[in-house]
Amino acid sequence: MNIAPRYLGRGSWLARRDPRVLILVVFFFIFTVLQIWDARLVFGLLIISVIYYRTAAIPWAQIRRNWTVVFLFIGMLVTVNMLVAGGNVEAMPEGEPDVLFYFPLLGTPISAQSVSLAVTQFLRYLAMATIGFPVAFAIAPSDFGVAFRRLGVPEKFAFGIDLTFRFLPSLSADFQSTVDAQRIRGFDWSAGATGFLTRVRRSTPVIVPTVVNAIAGAEDTIDAMDLRGFGTGRRTWLRLLVYDREDWLVLGFFVALLVAATLGGFLGTSDELWTPQFLIDIAQG
């Protein structure tokens, strides 16, 4: 089992950006997408997110599985939303939906509008996931602490993020040896336990030792930090982060996008659901 962040985009154009850029872009973009319900515009945003994603040069073969899961997960949520809720969303246009058919058993009306809504949601989700992926693969794990510090997170907590990354490899090795130790005692933790309760109860032989040992082993680390003056004054960070011109351009672009989306909502119809005419035609026979 390999439990470690995978810095697959190392050296790519996006990985060379200030890590704060990648973090900020996620938020600018999410709040842009939030305001747009016109599928044609959402599709445009998806294209932008894909172009952005491509600059991280993440090898496809190594994250194919991640994408499969994303598609399945989003598809499931959106479909359920359509079948269960049938589109009772404020973004839906006023007026009677053009019903295509009624879903068996549930009796939910499936309309031209609810199908459009599902497709739009799918594209929106996909665009957000695409923008979020580079955070996982194109930021050096050791840069997170300083990046969040420079974004205003208090010093101790920013360092706590670094420390979390520091603990990942050692604690996952400890976890693995606990799993091994219990296997020797005839306990196969990964063997398929089905029921809710069984699965939880069966996890105690691995979770309890891992947790208790990790906490008990913290004493020396705490001393090591106190003995080197942690938290006693303003600290410097060895890693210097400076936005360069390209960083500013990327940020500027996504800010502009956010502004445009906001204005579009006030002035235009970008925040209204768009239903293709052919779907309405089908519904109306």
Binding site: S142, D162, L163, S170, G217, D220, T221, A224
Partner: peptide
């Protein structure tokens, strides 16, 4: 191993 607090 416990004194070290940095990843790098």
């Amino acid at each position: 191993a416990k004194q070290i607090v940095g990843s790098m």
